[in-house]
Nucleic acid binder design. Structure first.
Lengths: 151, 151
DNA sequence: TTCTATCGCAACCAGACAGTTGCTATAAGC
DNA sequence: GCTTATAGCAACTGTCTGGTTGCGATAGAA
């Protein structure tokens, strides 16, 4: 299993968290513990199918883990691991954009941030995006973010 | 001007960063400095209008600031301030989940119980969402995330 | 004045997406 | 066996979104 692209992970996390229904699902799981889609559908004002769809996306982002239980039951529980990558990504962006604010931020979040600072230069551009013409930023932000969706 | 809802700010930041084109725009601005939509359109493989749309969203999220210049020129520059809120939000989530996860793991290892008692009391549901019945997490995550889009 | 550079408004399009409903399959429990 | 609980597959719908093209307006510069 190759190491996941931090930016892709961050993107998935951001997309997941940008949607209120999904934050609601995550919150319900965090507060009440692992639950099935049916459980969640009884707790939240959307249907089981909608919940399932969201859970699939959340699982793809790594923010929930599916654990098969008794019968056909599948319980989902929250998983904080991808958050670290998303946090790193944000921290790197903030640091890059505004050195002063980033330093302040670092001092404020010194106890929360557990990801090491990405001090290295830009990663190599992905070979499958040849139309990229924006040079990679000197920070951890990679040229991969120049990847445009091919339609 | 009332204090912006941290969760709303974070949501806007996440939505902005979840999209590769917008990350590309932000990167171009960060690397090359303030630019107009027309500048950016010449640097990136999408049209000026598309750029403009993205810039509007980025401005709404506070991630870019528009600075009118000479003629009709409007240059946009990156603004890191909202990142702090997004980072705080992520940090609070990660901290909250990790804590529960650790307790949950211990509980699972011991008894296989699936529903540990919630450690804190529930926040009052918002009066405009009477169907909400998920208690707010004890962290900075508010019941506002229970807000469902009204269609 | 004309020319150049940039912007804004508008319409259009295809695909994505959040949510719904209907139905069937499966895994137990009784 | 029947019943119950949960999941999966599928289709559908309306809205949203990323991107395009066309056109005109505006602010200077020459």
């Amino acid at each position: 299993m190759p190491r996941p692209d931090p930016e892709k992970v961050a993107e998935a996390v951001f997309a997941a968290l940008a949607e209120p229904s999904r934050r609601g699902i995550l919150s319900a799981l965090a507060v009440r513990g692992p639950a099935t889609a049916t459980d969640l559908a009884s707790q939240l004002p959307i249907t089981r199918q909608a919940i399932t769809k969201h859970l699939e996306l959340l699982a793809a982002a790594g923010l929930v883990l599916a654990e098969p239980g008794e019968r056909r039951r599948i319980r989902y529980r929250v998983n904080a691991a991808p958050m670290a990558m998303a946090q790193s990504y944000l921290a790197a962006l903030a640091r890059d954009w505004d050195g002063k604010l980033a330093r302040l931020q670092r001092s404020l979040d010194a106890t929360e941030l557990d990801a090491p600072a990405p001090p290295s230069g830009a990663a190599a551009p992905e070979p499958n995006t040849p139309e990229l013409n924006t040079p990679a930023p000197p920070s951890g932000v990679t040229a991969a973010e120049m990847e445009w969706r091919s339609k």
